[in-house]
């Protein structure tokens, strides 16, 4: 039983390592290599937590993937569109790992720890860079090349309502399920659900200003939020030593 309890942590650990290190660029894509190796280990060793076929987010994820493929095929620059759509590959892997192999508070805490470490490292690097270039915030941001306002919304806008509808639907599903879970007094992970609800709200508000799937982290965040919401619905795994 203890071994099984450890095996269910493989998938969340893989996602956590990816989220904590994806800002690092050391010549090789270390984070994606770690995610792929962890996913392979989870595929071989971990039990699949989700048994219910065709949950709603799956349908909308499939619909969005279909619209993405259609968009790439119909694009006048299919090769460029394909390259710019590459963030969806790790995003899909993260969604599958979270929704199929993660359950219970320990796994969710691991993923949240990975997110927190990644966010802290990014914030620290921004502050460090700003301290090295005092008095010139524009120059500092330019050095870091954070593309806050310079990325065209080409992927989603090109797909129009066909692409936007599945995204809106899957986000709507996530908000609804997180709200319902947060409202359940008997749910052991309702605090996580409340946190997810806040994250969905922040993400949706940010989308009014500037969000685009060309950005790696936007696709990763959508997949992480939806995957964590799906993971909250899974029954908790056995506790080690019990």
């Amino acid at each position: 039983m203890e071994a099984e309890a450890k095996r269910v942590l493989i998938a969340p650990a893989a996602v956590a390592v990816f989220l904590a290190t994806d800002w690092l660029w050391v010549g090789v894509d270390f984070s994606l290599i770690a995610l792929t190796c962890g996913a392979t280990a989870a595929l071989v060793l971990s039990p699949e937590s989700r048994q219910s076929p065709w949950p709603w987010p799956d349908l909308w994820v499939i619909a969005f993937a279909a619209s993405l493929v259609l968009s790439i095929l119909l694009s006048g620059h299919a090769r460029l569109s394909l390259l710019l759509s590459s963030p969806f590959i790790p995003a899909l892997l993260i969604y599958l790992l979270l929704s199929r192999f993660v359950s219970g508070p320990r796994g969710i805490r691991l993923v949240l720890a990975g997110l927190s470490i990644g966010a802290l490292c990014i914030a620290a690097s921004v502050l460090l860079d700003a301290s090295l270039q005092p008095g010139d915030p524009a120059g500092s941001i330019g050095t870091l090349a954070i593309p806050l306002l310079v990325v065209p919304n080409d992927i989603l806008s090109r797909q129009g309502m066909v692409g936007a509808l599945p995204v809106a639907a899957v986000l709507g599903w996530g908000v609804k399920r997180a709200y319902q879970t947060a409202r359940r007094a008997d749910h052991p992970e309702r605090l996580f659900a409340a946190g997810l609800l806040g994250a969905f709200a922040a993400f949706s508000l940010a989308s009014f200003v500037e969000l685009t799937f060309v950005r790696y982290w936007v696709a990763i965040m959508v997949a992480t939020l939806i995957g964590l919401t799906a993971a909250l619905e899974q029954p908790s795994p056995p506790i080690a030593g019990v």
């Binding site: 894509d29 994606l32 290599i33 995610l35 792929t36 996913a39 392979t40 989870a42 595929l43 699949e48 989700r50 048994q51 219910s52 076929p53 065709w54 949950p55 799956d58 390259l83 590459s86 590959i89 790790p90 899909l92 892997l93 599958l96 790992l97 929704s99 199929r100 192999f101």
Partner: peptide, 29 residues
């Protein structure tokens, strides 16, 4: 709850293969 598998393992396997391909072609991309 149904006891049928959801096909998650097959989908995950396909996503892993796609990730490996992405890792291989990333420098050229």
């Amino acid at each position: 709850m149904s006891t049928r598998p959801s096909g998650g393992r097959l989908a995950t396997l396909l996503a892993i293969i796609a990730s490996v391909i992405m890792l291989v072609i990333a420098p050229q991309a």
